[in-house]
Design a protein around this nucleic acid. Structure first.
Lengths: 125, 125
DNA sequence: ATATGTGCAAACTGTTTGCACACGA
DNA sequence: TCGTGTGCAAACAGTTTGCACATAT
């Protein structure tokens, strides 16, 4: 762990302590409870940097928002088109890792997303 | 196959005849060679509709552009961070389908993306 | 005639960036 | 002091949308 700025530490703390897949703005609002006058630009800058370093994962599910995940291990995301929730799931196999090896492609991140309707929304409607 | 407008037909034709994963703007420029005065808004509207219907796939690799794919079958995408190319690959297993079944999640689309450096960029640098 | 789709351009919005300033080594 | 990071606000860019008009049934 490097010697990060207190802003970056706060962002990491917020991200570590949630099991959702928050957007930059949600993180911004949470971090403001720790550092009230932090700016949204700083949040974006740090999230980009952390993502580039591989400390966190940037997840784009096509809802117009970038989502961030503290868990950088390969795992699946189940994204509900109805309520927008994103659930994690353990992978039973990792085809992207195997594939990449065969094709001479060096992946440093792999993303698995299933789009559909979650159980909760299914029973509600 | 429904009775689509000639604009939508042209968009589908362009999409069918490429093996890349074009952006809305690239599609727009191609379609203009068929329908010179088509508007970008129409391209976006049709792509959204087609994607919603499941006729095409919308793919977001986090480069700021939405990419579209005529191939709606589950397959892997290898996205090069260097040159931005997106290569297709056959899946050796489909964990998202299996997972979803177990968790009561009904997916209508599954996205597999590996981020890294492609073989071409690796040898060039 | 009526409903659906289009062209155009303005508006929207998540994200990025330039710049002056603050902070830590 | 010097370099890196921040706060602020303006700018950016991909996408969406309102509206008048065209098109097909």
């Amino acid at each position: 762990m490097k010697n990060y700025s207190k802003q970056r530490e706060a962002i990491l703390t917020v991200l570590r302590e949630t099991d959702t897949h928050p957007t930059a703005n949600w993180i911004y609002e949470q971090v403001r409870e720790i550092i009230p006058n932090i700016s949204l630009g700083t949040v974006y800058r740090n999230l980009s940097e952390l993502s580039r370093n591989g400390d966190i994962i940037s997840l784009n599910v096509g809802d117009g928002f970038e989502h961030f995940d503290y868990d950088t291990t390969p795992h699946a995301h189940l994204h509900c088109k109805e309520c927008g929730c994103i659930h994690d799931a353990r992978l039973e196999c990792d085809p992207l890792a195997e594939l990449s090896k065969k094709m001479g492609f060096m992946p440093d991140t792999t993303i698995y997303v299933a789009y559909g309707i979650c159980q909760n929304c299914k029973t509600t409607n």
